[in-house]
Write a protein that binds this DNA or RNA. Structure first.
Lengths: 136, 136
DNA sequence: GCTTTGAATAAGACTTGCCTTATATAAGGA
DNA sequence: TCCTTATATAAGGCAAGTCTTATTCAAAGC
């Protein structure tokens, strides 16, 4: 199962959010999930299995308990895939770094700087921009 | 359809990669995809529809042609969701920025600095670290 | 006007994923 | 030992997604 398929399920996304806060037992995860989604314990267990088998989590036993920990490797893959699109909403993050994209776009509307996507169809009539690749 | 569901399909991911390079006609996308996946024209068209209806692309007509352009908004949502996990593989990106996580992890193994995930089960016996949240 | 090209839609088969109930397995405690 | 708790697995039903072929619709070109 591909990382994106795994993340396609809202229950699994929620589980990962929980695990992002720290290691949790299967029981704790199940309890939290069941409050939000009203599904059975086996259903949660099956989601945990998917996460396990696709590498999003690792498990260790402590008595009868199973302690789930996040393993970020697949999430990182997703992040890597996303990288090629980031230029569409982020101006290149140079030395300084973290200016809000929202602010940047607003500024672009004044000075006309090309920063990536979100150009409306109309804009094309105004220039010879045929290709639209990010991070130019 | 949720953004992650849309990205769950490899054909759609490929289409987005193509569109990331610039606007493409439906025909151009179809040709490229059919070389890689061996599916029919309607199949590609249906994927384009999904991308359209879920906001990943916008279309404009030029004669009989349909020109597809990427709309990064949903990708950005995905990126935002991923943000909470980024601390697991990135040391906080301060002023300087882009040190490879690989290098950082290696260093951590020496000085014991807490930087996020990927701590092995054994490590737990060495300290009172009960919670494991990124970006601490 | 007719035919061809570009692209979308329709209908139906097939597959896959998710959930449920029932059950298994193993640890903990009386 | 027996019962309970913690968790996982099994089997089957149902829903949703993706593919295919057939068809529609609109623009282009002769």
């Amino acid at each position: 199962m591909h990382a994106f398929d795994v993340l396609g399920d809202p229950v699994r996304r929620r589980i990962l959010e929980l695990l992002a806060e720290g290691e949790r037992t299967s029981g704790a995860v199940t309890a939290a999930i069941r409050e939000e989604f009203a599904i059975s314990q086996p259903a949660v267990s099956q989601h945990l299995r998917v996460l396990r088998e696709s590498g999003f989590t690792t498990v260790r036993a402590e008595g009868a308990r199973r302690l789930y920990t996040i393993d970020a490797a697949p999430l990182r893959e997703v992040d890597v895939w996303l990288e090629r699109f980031r230029g569409f909403w982020e101006q290149r993050l140079d030395a300084l770094g973290t200016e809000l994209a929202r602010g940047k776009r607003a500024r672009r509307l004044h000075d006309g700087t090309q920063g990536g996507g979100n150009r409306s169809a109309k804009d094309r009539t105004a220039g010879r921009a045929k290709e639209e690749t990010p991070g130019g």
